[in-house]
Amino acid sequence: MDSTSLTDDVGYLLSRASGSLVRATNAALTVHGLRVRSYSALLLACDSGDGMSQRDLAEALGLDPSQVVLLVDELTEAGLVERRPSESDRRTKLVCGTAAGRAVRGRAERSVAEAHRGQLEQLSAEEQDLLRGLLGRLVLGGDPALRG
Rank of each mutant, 00 (worst) to 15 (best):
E127T: 07
M1H: 12
A125W: 01
V22R: 13
C46D: 10
S53A: 13
A125C: 03
A45Q: 12
R117V: 00
V72H: 05
L63E: 06
D56V: 05
S111E: 10
L44K: 11
H116Y: 11
L29T: 15
V104C: 14
E82K: 10
S15R: 11
L134C: 04
A60W: 12
P65H: 11
L140C: 11
R147L: 02
D143Y: 02
A60S: 15
L13F: 04
R132A: 14
E121G: 00
S5Q: 11
L43Q: 14
R83P: 00
A99W: 04
L6W: 07
G33P: 04
Q119W: 01
G101F: 04
D2F: 00
L34T: 02
P85I: 03
M52L: 10
R137S: 08
L61C: 07
A145K: 03
T4E: 01
V72S: 06
A17V: 08
Q122C: 12
P85A: 05
A99V: 09
L94A: 03
E121W: 00
A145N: 09
A113V: 15
P65C: 14
L130R: 09
E59K: 08
L140Q: 01
R35V: 14
P65R: 12
A27E: 01
R84Y: 07
T98Y: 02
R132F: 08
T98C: 04
Q67A: 13
A41C: 14
R84L: 14
G118R: 06
A60Y: 07
G148M: 06
R147F: 01
S38W: 04
E59F: 05
K93M: 11
A103Q: 10
H32N: 13
Q67I: 08
V22F: 13
R137C: 08
A41D: 08
L134G: 05
S111W: 10
S124E: 13
R35I: 15
V139D: 05
D89P: 04
E59I: 07
D9Y: 10
Q128T: 00
